[in-house]
């Protein structure tokens, strides 16, 4: 394993104001290819806002975002997806009226030329369906492939969230609280799933559940009031005095 010179994701001096309120202040983060990065911080620390800027849902007020060395700061969200960026949502964002297989298929379709095809029914793309079933198998949901999302449990929806992103074989995967609202058993499930993500994929994860998430992480970034407080190797960040201050207060 050689460390590449260009980081998978590089954020330089990122600023974002909402009205007059700063949500992201002077944030700089470097994530190397294959790295497992955990982003922690109290509620309102600006974690999801940071994700939304990385994906392009929000434009930063100033600063730069680079994917594998390419400046994507002003790029539209769908173009970033084509550069290998995928994400999941903290609030489950699935296509509720459609089947699980259809949900995953949309994830596959998004990166293919076929998405512009107005003549061929989506149902006739057998290879896409095969692949969708395979991906559902990764999260142990292939038996529910033809059930609508409304029929499945919350924990299963969390798994579909991740499967939809994984179907895209992303180079950089942003997971926004993949464990939120899950039972202990389900959490172990997701943990196993995240741990099994191949090293070709760089993973950046927001999570509150330290017990589970810290095991998955190699590096940790602590955000507080939109600023990076501590950033580095997992154990060093945990041991840092400032981390305790943020979480325990004075």
């Amino acid at each position: 394993m050689t460390t590449s010179a260009t980081p998978a994701l590089e954020i330089i001096n990122l600023h974002k104001n909402f009205g007059g309120l700063p949500a992201t202040q002077n944030v700089s983060i470097k994530v190397q290819p294959g790295e497992r990065r955990l982003i922690i911080g109290p509620n309102g620390a600006g974690k999801t806002t940071l994700f939304n800027q990385i994906t392009g849902d929000f434009l930063p007020t100033s600063g730069t975002i680079k994917l594998f060395g390419q400046d994507v700061t002003k790029l539209k969200p769908h173009k970033r997806a084509h550069l290998g960026l995928s994400r999941t949502y903290q609030i489950i964002t699935l296509f509720n009226r459609d089947t699980l297989a259809h949900n995953i298929t949309l994830g596959l379709l998004g990166l293919q030329k076929a998405r512009w095809n107005m003549l061929r029914p989506l149902a006739t793309y057998g290879d896409m369906r095969t692949e969708a079933i395979r991906v559902l198998g990764l999260v142990n949901l292939e038996h529910l492939a033809d059930r609508p999302v409304t029929d499945i449990s919350y924990g299963e929806k969390r798994r579909v969230e991740i499967a939809m992103a994984m179907a895209q074989r992303p180079k950089v995967l942003l997971l926004d609280e993949p464990l939120a609202g899950l039972s202990a058993g389900e959490r172990a499930n997701i943990k196993e799933l995240v741990a099994s993500i191949p090293r070709e994929t760089t993973v950046v994860m927001i999570e509150h559940d330290m017990d589970t998430a810290l095991d998955l992480a190699e590096t940790v970034t602590l955000l507080h009031y939109g600023k990076v407080i501590v950033d580095g190797e997992r154990d060093a960040v945990i041991a840092d005095e400032k981390t305790r201050e943020v979480y325990l207060g004075h």
């Binding site: 994906t55 769908h78 997806a81 084509h82 296509f95 949309l106 379709l109 998004g110 998405r115 895209q168």
Partner: peptide, 15 residues
Amino acid sequence: RGTRDQPRRMAALGF
């Protein structure tokens, strides 16, 4: 139909 139901997700998926 995807853009009707979840436009943000669709953009994130590459549409």
